[in-house]
Simulated assay, not measured.
Amino acid sequence: MSNILNVQNLQKVYSGGNRELTILHDLTFEVKKGEVFSIVGPSGSGKTTLLGLCAGLDEASSGKVELCGEELTRLTEDERARLRNRKTGFVFQDFQLLPTLTAIENVAIPLELQAEKAAFERSKMLLEKVGLGDRIHHYPSQLSGGEQQRVALARAFVNEPEILFADEPTGNLDEETGEKIIQLLFELNKEHGTTLVIVTHDMELAKLSNRVLRLKGGRILESEIS
C-alpha cells in the first residue's frame, strides 16, 4: 500500500520578540492510502499545528511534507490551495460554515470553485445521505450543532477527496450527537475509500483507527497499531 502523506524531519518554530518557541520537533511519519490515522495528545502538544502543516494550511519552518504526491514546500500558496480543493476535505471542531449561505450552498462551495456543473445536485444527494434532505435551504443559525456538523461532513466529502483531515470533529458536541457524527464519518469514509486523518483527545475514537500517533510537547511519543 503506497503512502498518501509523507512527513520528514518536520519542525515548526514561532518567533516572537527575542525568543523562539518550537511547537513541533523533528517529526517523521507516513500515512498509507485508505487508512484511518489518528493523532492524539494533551492540549498544547502540537496536534492542530501538525494537521495544518500536513494539509498545507501553514508552512513548516523546516522539513518536508509530501501530500498526494506533491511536495508542499515546492508549491506556491495558490498551488497549495488548488491541491487542497481538488484532493482534500476538512472537518473542524467549530464547523466553519458560512452563516450567510444555506446548507446546500455551503456544501456546494468546493465544487463551485471547480466550476462543477452538477454542484447542487451532488450537494443535495450528500445532504440527504447525512439525514438533512429536509434542511437543505436552512441557514447555519437555524440548525443545531449536530446538524451543522452533518453539513460540514457533506461538504468535506462532496468533492470526493483522496484524504480528509478532521480536527476534533466531535469537540463541540454532546456525547450522543458526537457518536452519531463519528458513525456517519466512518460510513462516508468507507463508502468513498478516503484516507482519514483525525486529531482527537477522545481515546475511544482513536481506537477505531488503523494507527495512532501520540504527541507530547511537540514530539512523537509513539506510533502504534490500534
Rank of each mutant, 00 (worst) to 15 (best):
E187I: 11
E176A: 14
L143N: 00
L213H: 09
E77L: 11
G217D: 10
R82N: 04
Q96Y: 08
V40Q: 01
G41R: 12
P161A: 12
R80Q: 12
I182S: 04
G178P: 00
D94A: 13
V130S: 06
I104S: 03
Q8V: 10
L53D: 01
R82C: 01
Q114N: 03
P110D: 07
F95Y: 14
K87W: 09
V212A: 03
T49I: 13
T73Q: 13
G171P: 05
K117G: 07
E105W: 06
G52W: 09
R74W: 02
E222C: 01
L188Q: 04
D26E: 11
R74D: 02
E162V: 09
L213K: 05
L50Q: 09
I182Q: 07
E176M: 13
L113I: 14
G34A: 02
E116N: 11
Y14H: 12
S15K: 11
L184E: 07
D58P: 00
S223L: 12
M203Y: 12
H201D: 05
V158Q: 07
K190V: 12
L208E: 15
G69H: 06
V7Y: 03
K129L: 11
V197C: 06
S2K: 11
G46S: 03
V65E: 04
E112I: 15
N106Y: 13
L5I: 15
G89V: 05
H137S: 09
C68I: 10
L113C: 01
I136A: 02
L221Y: 00
H138Y: 09
N18P: 00
L67M: 10
E66I: 15
L24S: 02
A119L: 13
A166F: 08
K216P: 00
Q183N: 10
T49R: 08
R74L: 14
T49Y: 07
G44A: 06
R155E: 12
I104N: 03
G44L: 10
V7C: 10
I136H: 02
E222A: 11
N172S: 15
